[in-house]
Design a protein around this nucleic acid. Structure first.
Length: 465
RNA sequence: UCCUCAGUAGCUCAAUGGUAGAGCAUUCGGCUGUUAACCGAAGGGUUGUAGGUUCGAGUCCUACCUGAGGAGCCA
Protein backbone atom coordinates (compact mmCIF):
# COMPACT_ATOMS: atom_id res chain seq x y z
CA UNK A 1 0.00 0.00 0.00
CA UNK A 2 1.20 3.49 -0.81
CA UNK A 3 0.78 5.34 2.46
CA UNK A 4 -0.20 8.97 2.53
CA UNK A 5 3.33 10.13 3.23
CA UNK A 6 4.45 8.56 -0.03
CA UNK A 7 1.88 10.03 -2.38
CA UNK A 8 2.89 12.63 -4.92
CA UNK A 9 0.97 15.25 -2.97
CA UNK A 10 3.31 14.58 -0.07
CA UNK A 11 6.49 14.24 -2.14
CA UNK A 12 5.91 17.66 -3.72
CA UNK A 13 6.04 19.20 -0.25
CA UNK A 14 9.32 17.53 0.76
CA UNK A 15 12.44 19.66 1.19
CA UNK A 16 15.08 19.31 -1.54
CA UNK A 17 17.66 16.67 -0.76
CA UNK A 18 15.16 14.08 0.54
CA UNK A 19 15.35 10.56 -0.84
CA UNK A 20 12.00 9.51 -2.26
CA UNK A 21 10.16 6.79 -4.14
CA UNK A 22 7.20 7.74 -6.28
CA UNK A 23 4.46 5.62 -7.83
CA UNK A 24 2.07 6.74 -10.49
CA UNK A 25 0.88 6.75 -14.08
CA UNK A 26 2.74 8.60 -16.80
CA UNK A 27 0.86 11.65 -18.00
CA UNK A 28 3.36 12.89 -20.56
CA UNK A 29 7.01 12.59 -21.44
CA UNK A 30 9.55 14.83 -23.15
CA UNK A 31 12.95 13.63 -24.32
CA UNK A 32 16.07 15.60 -24.92
CA UNK A 33 19.53 14.40 -25.97
CA UNK A 34 20.87 13.62 -22.55
CA UNK A 35 17.82 13.65 -20.35
CA UNK A 36 14.21 12.43 -20.17
CA UNK A 37 11.39 14.34 -18.48
CA UNK A 38 8.51 12.15 -17.35
CA UNK A 39 5.44 13.60 -15.64
CA UNK A 40 3.56 11.21 -13.40
CA UNK A 41 0.39 11.51 -11.34
CA UNK A 42 -1.15 9.24 -8.70
CA UNK A 43 -4.39 11.13 -8.20
CA UNK A 44 -3.32 12.66 -4.89
CA UNK A 45 -2.76 16.14 -6.25
CA UNK A 46 -3.52 18.27 -9.24
CA UNK A 47 0.13 19.01 -10.10
CA UNK A 48 2.11 16.14 -11.64
CA UNK A 49 5.49 15.10 -10.34
CA UNK A 50 8.28 15.70 -12.85
CA UNK A 51 10.77 12.86 -13.03
CA UNK A 52 14.18 13.74 -14.43
CA UNK A 53 16.05 10.76 -15.77
CA UNK A 54 19.52 11.08 -17.25
CA UNK A 55 20.18 9.13 -20.40
CA UNK A 56 21.95 5.85 -19.71
CA UNK A 57 20.52 5.41 -16.20
CA UNK A 58 17.93 2.96 -17.41
CA UNK A 59 18.09 0.17 -19.94
CA UNK A 60 16.64 0.99 -23.34
CA UNK A 61 13.97 -1.68 -23.00
CA UNK A 62 12.53 -0.13 -19.84
CA UNK A 63 12.63 3.34 -21.26
CA UNK A 64 10.76 2.20 -24.35
CA UNK A 65 7.91 1.00 -22.14
CA UNK A 66 7.71 4.24 -20.18
CA UNK A 67 4.99 5.70 -22.33
CA UNK A 68 1.81 7.68 -21.65
CA UNK A 69 -0.49 5.67 -19.38
CA UNK A 70 2.17 3.26 -18.08
CA UNK A 71 2.42 2.65 -14.33
CA UNK A 72 5.90 3.23 -12.91
CA UNK A 73 7.91 3.25 -9.71
CA UNK A 74 10.74 5.77 -9.49
CA UNK A 75 13.35 6.14 -6.78
CA UNK A 76 15.78 8.99 -6.37
CA UNK A 77 16.08 12.32 -4.67
CA UNK A 78 13.80 15.33 -4.52
CA UNK A 79 15.70 18.36 -5.86
CA UNK A 80 14.94 21.98 -6.59
CA UNK A 81 13.82 22.30 -10.16
CA UNK A 82 15.84 24.68 -12.34
CA UNK A 83 12.99 24.81 -14.85
CA UNK A 84 9.78 26.76 -14.67
CA UNK A 85 6.50 25.05 -13.87
CA UNK A 86 7.45 23.19 -10.70
CA UNK A 87 9.35 23.99 -7.53
CA UNK A 88 10.74 20.52 -7.01
CA UNK A 89 11.27 17.42 -9.10
CA UNK A 90 12.43 13.87 -8.60
CA UNK A 91 15.94 13.16 -9.90
CA UNK A 92 15.65 9.47 -10.66
CA UNK A 93 18.20 6.80 -9.85
CA UNK A 94 15.98 3.90 -10.82
CA UNK A 95 12.88 3.59 -12.96
CA UNK A 96 10.68 0.50 -13.12
CA UNK A 97 7.73 0.04 -15.42
CA UNK A 98 5.19 -1.92 -13.38
CA UNK A 99 2.39 -1.88 -15.93
CA UNK A 100 3.08 -1.03 -19.55
CA UNK A 101 0.55 0.83 -21.69
CA UNK A 102 1.00 0.19 -25.42
CA UNK A 103 0.95 3.69 -26.88
CA UNK A 104 -0.54 2.66 -30.23
CA UNK A 105 -3.78 1.62 -28.57
CA UNK A 106 -4.03 3.53 -25.27
CA UNK A 107 -6.96 5.90 -25.83
CA UNK A 108 -5.81 8.77 -23.62
CA UNK A 109 -3.11 10.85 -25.18
CA UNK A 110 -1.05 13.67 -23.87
CA UNK A 111 -3.28 15.91 -25.91
CA UNK A 112 -6.48 17.54 -24.78
CA UNK A 113 -9.66 15.49 -25.21
CA UNK A 114 -13.18 16.78 -25.09
CA UNK A 115 -15.56 15.62 -22.39
CA UNK A 116 -17.80 13.62 -24.71
CA UNK A 117 -14.83 11.56 -25.87
CA UNK A 118 -13.59 11.02 -22.33
CA UNK A 119 -17.05 9.81 -21.34
CA UNK A 120 -16.62 6.93 -23.78
CA UNK A 121 -13.52 5.91 -21.84
CA UNK A 122 -15.12 5.84 -18.42
CA UNK A 123 -12.45 3.41 -17.24
CA UNK A 124 -9.62 5.78 -18.06
CA UNK A 125 -11.09 9.24 -17.65
CA UNK A 126 -10.30 9.40 -13.90
CA UNK A 127 -6.62 9.59 -14.93
CA UNK A 128 -7.16 12.84 -16.81
CA UNK A 129 -6.53 16.29 -15.35
CA UNK A 130 -10.18 17.27 -15.47
CA UNK A 131 -11.62 14.17 -13.87
CA UNK A 132 -8.84 13.96 -11.32
CA UNK A 133 -9.91 17.41 -10.20
CA UNK A 134 -13.62 16.55 -10.37
CA UNK A 135 -13.35 13.49 -8.17
CA UNK A 136 -11.04 15.06 -5.62
CA UNK A 137 -13.60 17.84 -5.25
CA UNK A 138 -16.42 15.29 -5.06
CA UNK A 139 -14.60 13.48 -2.27
CA UNK A 140 -14.02 16.71 -0.37
CA UNK A 141 -17.61 17.82 -0.84
CA UNK A 142 -18.98 14.53 0.48
CA UNK A 143 -16.73 14.80 3.52
CA UNK A 144 -17.76 18.41 4.11
CA UNK A 145 -21.43 17.39 4.07
CA UNK A 146 -20.92 14.89 6.87
CA UNK A 147 -18.69 17.32 8.74
CA UNK A 148 -21.30 20.08 8.57
CA UNK A 149 -24.09 17.92 9.98
CA UNK A 150 -21.96 16.06 12.50
CA UNK A 151 -20.65 19.34 13.91
CA UNK A 152 -24.27 20.37 14.46
CA UNK A 153 -25.38 17.15 16.09
CA UNK A 154 -27.42 15.77 13.19
CA UNK A 155 -27.87 12.00 13.12
CA UNK A 156 -26.89 10.28 9.88
CA UNK A 157 -29.76 8.00 8.80
CA UNK A 158 -29.41 5.31 6.15
CA UNK A 159 -32.70 5.52 4.33
CA UNK A 160 -33.76 2.33 2.55
CA UNK A 161 -32.95 1.91 -1.12
CA UNK A 162 -35.68 -0.65 -1.76
CA UNK A 163 -39.19 0.56 -1.10
CA UNK A 164 -42.72 -0.76 -1.55
CA UNK A 165 -44.39 2.62 -1.27
CA UNK A 166 -45.16 3.40 -4.87
CA UNK A 167 -46.97 6.64 -4.25
CA UNK A 168 -44.30 9.05 -3.18
CA UNK A 169 -45.18 11.04 -6.23
CA UNK A 170 -41.66 12.09 -7.08
CA UNK A 171 -41.51 10.65 -10.56
CA UNK A 172 -41.21 7.37 -12.42
CA UNK A 173 -39.67 4.53 -10.45
CA UNK A 174 -37.48 1.55 -11.28
CA UNK A 175 -39.30 -1.63 -10.40
CA UNK A 176 -37.34 -4.33 -8.60
CA UNK A 177 -38.49 -7.91 -8.84
CA UNK A 178 -37.30 -11.50 -8.57
CA UNK A 179 -40.18 -12.72 -10.73
CA UNK A 180 -39.41 -14.16 -14.14
CA UNK A 181 -40.18 -11.10 -16.25
CA UNK A 182 -40.50 -13.25 -19.37
CA UNK A 183 -43.15 -15.40 -17.73
CA UNK A 184 -44.48 -13.90 -14.50
CA UNK A 185 -47.04 -15.71 -12.33
CA UNK A 186 -50.58 -14.52 -12.93
CA UNK A 187 -53.71 -14.73 -10.86
CA UNK A 188 -56.74 -15.91 -12.85
CA UNK A 189 -59.18 -14.58 -10.25
CA UNK A 190 -57.71 -11.10 -10.75
CA UNK A 191 -58.17 -10.85 -14.50
CA UNK A 192 -54.83 -12.50 -15.24
CA UNK A 193 -52.81 -9.68 -13.73
CA UNK A 194 -49.33 -10.35 -12.41
CA UNK A 195 -49.49 -12.03 -9.01
CA UNK A 196 -47.18 -9.95 -6.86
CA UNK A 197 -47.89 -12.03 -3.78
CA UNK A 198 -45.33 -14.37 -5.37
CA UNK A 199 -42.75 -11.58 -5.62
CA UNK A 200 -39.87 -11.19 -3.16
CA UNK A 201 -41.63 -8.64 -0.94
CA UNK A 202 -45.14 -10.04 -1.64
CA UNK A 203 -45.97 -6.75 -3.32
CA UNK A 204 -44.47 -4.55 -6.05
CA UNK A 205 -41.14 -3.02 -5.02
CA UNK A 206 -39.08 -0.16 -6.38
CA UNK A 207 -35.81 1.71 -5.99
CA UNK A 208 -36.25 4.75 -3.79
CA UNK A 209 -36.95 8.17 -5.27
CA UNK A 210 -36.49 9.93 -1.93
CA UNK A 211 -35.59 9.16 1.65
CA UNK A 212 -37.66 12.01 2.99
CA UNK A 213 -40.60 10.12 4.45
CA UNK A 214 -38.26 7.77 6.30
CA UNK A 215 -36.15 10.73 7.43
CA UNK A 216 -39.29 12.22 8.97
CA UNK A 217 -39.67 9.09 11.10
CA UNK A 218 -36.16 9.57 12.45
CA UNK A 219 -36.51 13.32 12.90
CA UNK A 220 -39.45 12.64 15.18
CA UNK A 221 -37.13 10.60 17.37
CA UNK A 222 -33.68 12.13 16.99
CA UNK A 223 -34.76 15.74 16.31
CA UNK A 224 -32.14 16.62 13.68
CA UNK A 225 -31.20 14.01 11.08
CA UNK A 226 -29.92 13.77 7.54
CA UNK A 227 -29.72 11.15 4.82
CA UNK A 228 -27.03 10.98 2.18
CA UNK A 229 -27.43 8.21 -0.35
CA UNK A 230 -28.30 7.17 -3.87
CA UNK A 231 -31.66 7.95 -5.39
CA UNK A 232 -33.23 6.63 -8.57
CA UNK A 233 -35.57 8.14 -11.14
CA UNK A 234 -36.75 6.26 -14.20
CA UNK A 235 -37.75 9.44 -16.02
CA UNK A 236 -36.75 9.56 -19.67
CA UNK A 237 -34.86 12.79 -19.09
CA UNK A 238 -32.10 13.68 -21.51
CA UNK A 239 -30.55 16.87 -20.21
CA UNK A 240 -27.21 17.99 -18.79
CA UNK A 241 -28.91 18.22 -15.37
CA UNK A 242 -30.52 14.78 -14.94
CA UNK A 243 -29.32 11.31 -14.03
CA UNK A 244 -31.24 8.09 -13.46
CA UNK A 245 -29.02 7.40 -10.43
CA UNK A 246 -27.88 10.32 -8.35
CA UNK A 247 -27.03 11.16 -4.76
CA UNK A 248 -29.15 13.28 -2.54
CA UNK A 249 -28.75 14.85 0.89
CA UNK A 250 -31.96 15.25 2.87
CA UNK A 251 -31.84 16.90 6.28
CA UNK A 252 -35.00 16.79 8.39
CA UNK A 253 -35.52 18.80 11.57
CA UNK A 254 -38.20 18.49 14.23
CA UNK A 255 -39.43 21.63 16.01
CA UNK A 256 -38.39 23.63 12.96
CA UNK A 257 -40.40 25.88 10.66
CA UNK A 258 -39.67 27.14 7.15
CA UNK A 259 -37.57 30.03 8.46
CA UNK A 260 -35.22 27.63 10.22
CA UNK A 261 -35.21 25.48 7.10
CA UNK A 262 -34.09 28.40 4.94
CA UNK A 263 -31.43 29.36 7.44
CA UNK A 264 -30.01 25.85 7.45
CA UNK A 265 -30.06 25.62 3.63
CA UNK A 266 -28.17 28.88 3.27
CA UNK A 267 -25.66 28.09 6.00
CA UNK A 268 -25.16 24.63 4.52
CA UNK A 269 -24.44 25.80 0.98
CA UNK A 270 -22.04 28.48 2.17
CA UNK A 271 -20.22 26.00 4.41
CA UNK A 272 -19.75 23.55 1.54
CA UNK A 273 -18.45 26.25 -0.78
CA UNK A 274 -16.02 27.57 1.81
CA UNK A 275 -14.77 24.08 2.60
CA UNK A 276 -14.06 23.24 -1.02
CA UNK A 277 -12.41 26.60 -1.66
CA UNK A 278 -10.12 25.99 1.28
CA UNK A 279 -9.26 22.35 0.59
CA UNK A 280 -9.35 22.01 -3.21
CA UNK A 281 -7.74 25.23 -4.32
CA UNK A 282 -5.55 23.88 -7.17
CA UNK A 283 -8.47 21.92 -8.57
CA UNK A 284 -10.81 24.92 -8.46
CA UNK A 285 -8.17 27.11 -10.06
CA UNK A 286 -7.98 24.60 -12.88
CA UNK A 287 -11.76 24.74 -13.38
CA UNK A 288 -11.62 28.50 -13.22
CA UNK A 289 -8.93 28.61 -15.88
CA UNK A 290 -10.24 25.92 -18.20
CA UNK A 291 -14.01 25.69 -17.80
CA UNK A 292 -15.62 28.64 -16.05
CA UNK A 293 -13.65 31.92 -15.82
CA UNK A 294 -16.02 33.38 -13.24
CA UNK A 295 -16.05 30.32 -10.97
CA UNK A 296 -13.85 31.51 -8.12
CA UNK A 297 -15.36 34.98 -8.11
CA UNK A 298 -18.85 33.50 -8.01
CA UNK A 299 -18.07 31.08 -5.21
CA UNK A 300 -16.44 33.78 -3.12
CA UNK A 301 -19.40 36.03 -3.73
CA UNK A 302 -21.93 33.37 -2.74
CA UNK A 303 -20.03 32.36 0.38
CA UNK A 304 -19.98 35.96 1.54
CA UNK A 305 -23.39 37.33 0.61
CA UNK A 306 -26.95 36.88 1.79
CA UNK A 307 -29.17 34.76 -0.39
CA UNK A 308 -32.12 36.62 -1.83
CA UNK A 309 -35.45 35.51 -0.33
CA UNK A 310 -38.87 36.19 -1.68
CA UNK A 311 -42.29 34.57 -1.79
CA UNK A 312 -43.53 33.00 -5.01
CA UNK A 313 -46.20 35.69 -5.34
CA UNK A 314 -43.54 38.39 -5.36
CA UNK A 315 -41.42 36.42 -7.83
CA UNK A 316 -44.36 36.27 -10.19
CA UNK A 317 -44.84 40.04 -9.89
CA UNK A 318 -41.18 40.65 -10.79
CA UNK A 319 -41.50 38.38 -13.79
CA UNK A 320 -44.73 40.02 -14.93
CA UNK A 321 -43.21 43.48 -14.68
CA UNK A 322 -39.98 42.47 -16.42
CA UNK A 323 -41.27 43.48 -19.84
CA UNK A 324 -39.83 40.27 -21.22
CA UNK A 325 -41.43 38.09 -23.84
CA UNK A 326 -41.59 34.69 -22.13
CA UNK A 327 -41.84 31.48 -24.06
CA UNK A 328 -44.10 30.30 -21.23
CA UNK A 329 -46.32 33.10 -19.95
CA UNK A 330 -46.13 33.95 -16.27
CA UNK A 331 -49.25 33.90 -14.19
CA UNK A 332 -50.00 33.22 -10.56
CA UNK A 333 -50.63 29.52 -10.11
CA UNK A 334 -48.34 28.10 -12.76
CA UNK A 335 -44.93 26.72 -11.92
CA UNK A 336 -41.81 28.74 -12.64
CA UNK A 337 -40.14 27.61 -15.86
CA UNK A 338 -36.40 27.33 -16.45
CA UNK A 339 -36.36 30.70 -18.20
CA UNK A 340 -38.06 32.35 -15.22
CA UNK A 341 -35.71 30.82 -12.67
CA UNK A 342 -32.74 31.87 -14.76
CA UNK A 343 -33.98 35.43 -15.05
CA UNK A 344 -34.39 35.70 -11.29
CA UNK A 345 -31.03 34.24 -10.29
CA UNK A 346 -28.85 35.28 -13.21
CA UNK A 347 -30.20 38.70 -14.11
CA UNK A 348 -32.17 40.17 -11.21
CA UNK A 349 -30.29 38.94 -8.13
CA UNK A 350 -27.07 37.45 -9.58
CA UNK A 351 -26.84 35.07 -6.62
CA UNK A 352 -28.82 32.18 -5.15
CA UNK A 353 -32.49 32.96 -4.57
CA UNK A 354 -34.86 31.24 -2.15
CA UNK A 355 -38.42 31.29 -3.42
CA UNK A 356 -41.04 30.33 -0.82
CA UNK A 357 -44.78 29.81 -0.41
CA UNK A 358 -45.72 28.25 -3.73
CA UNK A 359 -49.29 27.57 -4.79
CA UNK A 360 -50.51 24.36 -3.19
CA UNK A 361 -51.66 22.92 -6.51
CA UNK A 362 -48.14 22.64 -7.93
CA UNK A 363 -46.51 21.17 -4.83
CA UNK A 364 -46.53 17.83 -3.00
CA UNK A 365 -49.27 16.74 -0.60
CA UNK A 366 -47.04 16.73 2.50
CA UNK A 367 -46.20 20.44 2.42
CA UNK A 368 -47.77 22.53 5.15
CA UNK A 369 -50.72 24.69 4.15
CA UNK A 370 -50.60 28.42 4.78
CA UNK A 371 -53.53 30.24 6.36
CA UNK A 372 -54.42 31.84 3.02
CA UNK A 373 -55.57 28.40 1.88
CA UNK A 374 -53.84 28.85 -1.47
CA UNK A 375 -50.15 28.45 -0.78
CA UNK A 376 -47.90 26.01 1.06
CA UNK A 377 -44.71 26.41 3.07
CA UNK A 378 -42.42 25.26 0.26
CA UNK A 379 -39.01 26.61 -0.65
CA UNK A 380 -36.79 26.21 -3.68
CA UNK A 381 -33.22 27.42 -3.71
CA UNK A 382 -32.37 28.50 -7.24
CA UNK A 383 -28.76 28.88 -8.30
CA UNK A 384 -27.39 30.75 -11.32
CA UNK A 385 -26.59 28.36 -14.15
CA UNK A 386 -28.01 25.35 -12.34
CA UNK A 387 -31.63 26.12 -11.60
CA UNK A 388 -33.22 24.35 -8.69
CA UNK A 389 -30.47 23.04 -6.42
CA UNK A 390 -32.55 22.56 -3.28
CA UNK A 391 -36.23 21.80 -2.85
CA UNK A 392 -37.79 21.66 0.59
CA UNK A 393 -40.69 22.53 2.81
CA UNK A 394 -42.20 22.65 6.23
CA UNK A 395 -44.20 19.43 6.52
CA UNK A 396 -47.90 19.31 7.29
CA UNK A 397 -48.09 18.17 10.92
CA UNK A 398 -51.87 18.61 11.43
CA UNK A 399 -53.58 15.25 10.99
CA UNK A 400 -56.93 16.56 9.78
CA UNK A 401 -55.30 18.87 7.22
CA UNK A 402 -53.01 16.10 5.98
CA UNK A 403 -55.93 13.71 5.54
CA UNK A 404 -57.74 16.33 3.50
CA UNK A 405 -54.63 16.89 1.34
CA UNK A 406 -54.27 13.17 0.67
CA UNK A 407 -57.86 13.17 -0.58
CA UNK A 408 -57.22 16.22 -2.77
CA UNK A 409 -54.19 14.54 -4.30
CA UNK A 410 -56.18 11.31 -4.69
CA UNK A 411 -53.67 9.30 -2.69
CA UNK A 412 -54.89 6.21 -0.80
CA UNK A 413 -54.87 6.85 2.92
CA UNK A 414 -54.02 3.25 3.80
CA UNK A 415 -50.64 3.47 2.06
CA UNK A 416 -49.63 6.26 4.41
CA UNK A 417 -50.79 4.72 7.69
CA UNK A 418 -47.40 5.09 9.36
CA UNK A 419 -46.88 8.58 7.97
CA UNK A 420 -50.23 9.58 9.46
CA UNK A 421 -49.34 7.89 12.75
CA UNK A 422 -46.43 10.32 13.07
CA UNK A 423 -49.10 13.05 13.32
CA UNK A 424 -51.31 11.06 15.68
CA UNK A 425 -48.58 10.37 18.22
CA UNK A 426 -46.19 13.11 19.24
CA UNK A 427 -46.35 15.08 16.03
CA UNK A 428 -44.51 18.40 15.90
CA UNK A 429 -43.84 21.04 13.27
CA UNK A 430 -40.88 19.85 11.23
CA UNK A 431 -39.06 20.82 8.07
CA UNK A 432 -36.45 19.57 5.67
CA UNK A 433 -35.05 19.80 2.19
CA UNK A 434 -33.27 17.82 -0.50
CA UNK A 435 -30.01 18.83 -2.10
CA UNK A 436 -28.94 17.13 -5.31
CA UNK A 437 -25.32 16.21 -4.69
CA UNK A 438 -24.36 16.29 -8.36
CA UNK A 439 -26.11 19.62 -8.87
CA UNK A 440 -23.98 20.99 -6.04
CA UNK A 441 -20.93 19.46 -7.71
CA UNK A 442 -21.79 21.30 -10.92
CA UNK A 443 -22.10 24.50 -8.98
CA UNK A 444 -18.74 24.27 -7.21
CA UNK A 445 -16.77 22.95 -10.19
CA UNK A 446 -18.41 24.93 -12.98
CA UNK A 447 -18.81 21.70 -14.98
CA UNK A 448 -21.74 22.09 -17.35
CA UNK A 449 -22.86 18.46 -17.69
CA UNK A 450 -24.00 16.37 -14.73
CA UNK A 451 -22.60 13.24 -16.41
CA UNK A 452 -19.14 14.65 -15.81
CA UNK A 453 -19.41 15.05 -12.03
CA UNK A 454 -20.43 11.48 -11.11
CA UNK A 455 -18.00 8.55 -11.44
CA UNK A 456 -20.27 6.38 -13.57
CA UNK A 457 -23.28 8.20 -15.00
CA UNK A 458 -26.55 6.35 -15.57
CA UNK A 459 -28.83 7.95 -18.12
CA UNK A 460 -31.47 6.52 -20.49
CA UNK A 461 -29.69 3.93 -22.62
CA UNK A 462 -26.41 4.23 -20.73
CA UNK A 463 -25.13 2.08 -17.88
CA UNK A 464 -21.66 1.13 -19.18
CA UNK A 465 -18.84 0.55 -16.70
C1' U B 1 -40.54 11.99 -25.14
C1' C B 2 -40.48 16.62 -28.43
C1' C B 3 -37.43 20.43 -31.13
C1' U B 4 -32.52 21.97 -33.10
C1' C B 5 -27.54 20.95 -34.44
C1' A B 6 -23.61 17.54 -35.35
C1' G B 7 -21.11 12.69 -36.93
C1' U B 8 -14.53 12.82 -42.01
C1' A B 9 -7.41 9.36 -39.57
C1' G B 10 -6.32 7.35 -32.55
C1' C B 11 -7.69 12.86 -31.01
C1' U B 12 -9.17 18.09 -32.63
C1' C B 13 -10.80 19.81 -37.10
C1' A B 14 -10.67 21.36 -42.79
C1' A B 15 -12.38 20.11 -47.81
C1' U B 16 -17.87 25.41 -53.95
C1' G B 17 -21.59 18.48 -56.10
C1' G B 18 -15.54 17.11 -59.40
C1' U B 19 -8.27 13.24 -57.22
C1' A B 20 -10.14 13.19 -48.93
C1' G B 21 -6.20 17.23 -46.11
C1' A B 22 -3.76 19.63 -41.70
C1' G B 23 -2.14 19.85 -36.57
C1' C B 24 -1.48 16.71 -32.52
C1' A B 25 -0.82 11.41 -31.31
C1' U B 26 1.93 6.85 -33.14
C1' U B 27 6.68 4.70 -35.49
C1' C B 28 11.74 6.01 -37.06
C1' G B 29 15.68 9.71 -36.99
C1' G B 30 17.67 14.41 -34.99
C1' C B 31 18.18 17.93 -30.96
C1' U B 32 21.98 22.13 -25.04
C1' G B 33 17.02 21.15 -18.67
C1' U B 34 12.05 20.05 -21.29
C1' U B 35 6.84 22.23 -19.74
C1' A B 36 0.73 21.01 -25.05
C1' A B 37 9.01 20.78 -25.85
C1' C B 38 11.19 21.51 -30.70
C1' C B 39 13.06 19.90 -36.08
C1' G B 40 12.71 16.08 -40.17
C1' A B 41 10.43 11.69 -42.32
C1' A B 42 6.92 7.62 -42.54
C1' G B 43 2.53 4.77 -41.72
C1' G B 44 -2.53 5.77 -40.87
C1' G B 45 -9.54 6.57 -44.19
C1' U B 46 -15.54 1.63 -46.66
C1' U B 47 -16.28 10.15 -44.63
C1' G B 48 -21.90 6.77 -38.44
C1' U B 49 -25.37 2.77 -41.14
C1' A B 50 -28.79 1.56 -45.19
C1' G B 51 -31.10 3.35 -49.35
C1' G B 52 -31.98 7.29 -53.10
C1' U B 53 -30.95 11.70 -56.66
C1' U B 54 -26.74 12.62 -60.11
C1' C B 55 -22.22 11.48 -65.51
C1' G B 56 -20.09 12.11 -60.57
C1' A B 57 -21.96 12.51 -53.33
C1' G B 58 -17.91 13.71 -47.42
C1' U B 59 -21.23 17.57 -49.58
C1' C B 60 -28.15 17.02 -51.86
C1' C B 61 -32.80 13.78 -50.23
C1' U B 62 -35.15 9.74 -46.92
C1' A B 63 -34.91 6.42 -42.82
C1' C B 64 -32.22 4.63 -38.87
C1' C B 65 -28.01 4.77 -35.21
C1' U B 66 -24.93 7.76 -32.02
C1' G B 67 -23.64 12.34 -29.52
C1' A B 68 -24.59 17.39 -27.86
C1' G B 69 -27.80 21.57 -26.77
C1' G B 70 -32.84 23.42 -25.73
C1' A B 71 -37.85 21.96 -23.70
C1' G B 72 -40.80 18.94 -20.43
C1' C B 73 -40.09 16.35 -15.57
C1' C B 74 -37.24 17.22 -11.47
C1' A B 75 -32.69 17.14 -7.49
Amino acid sequence: MIRGERTIRHLLALPPGTKATAHGWIKTRRDSKGVHFIQINDGSSFPDLQIVLEAGKTVEETLAKATTGAAVRVSGEMVESPGKGQAVELRAETLEVIGASPPETYPLQKKRHNLETLREFGHFRPRSNTFGAVFRVRNALAYAIHKFFQERGFLYVHAPILTTSDAEGAGAMFQVTTLDVANPPRSPENGGRIDYTKDFFSKPAYLTVSGQLEAEIFALAFTNVYTFGPTFRAENSNTPRHLAEFWMIEPEMAFCDLEGNQQLAEEFLKYLISYVMEHCRPDLEFFNQRYEPSLLATLENVAGSEFARLPYTQAVEILEKSGRQWEFPVSWGSDLQSEHERYLTEEIFKRPVIVTDYPARIKAFYMRSNDDGKTVRAMDVLAPGIGEIIGGSQREERLDVLLEKLREHRLPEENYWWYLDLRRFGGVPHSGFGLGFERMMMYVTGMKNIRDVIPFPRTPGHAEF
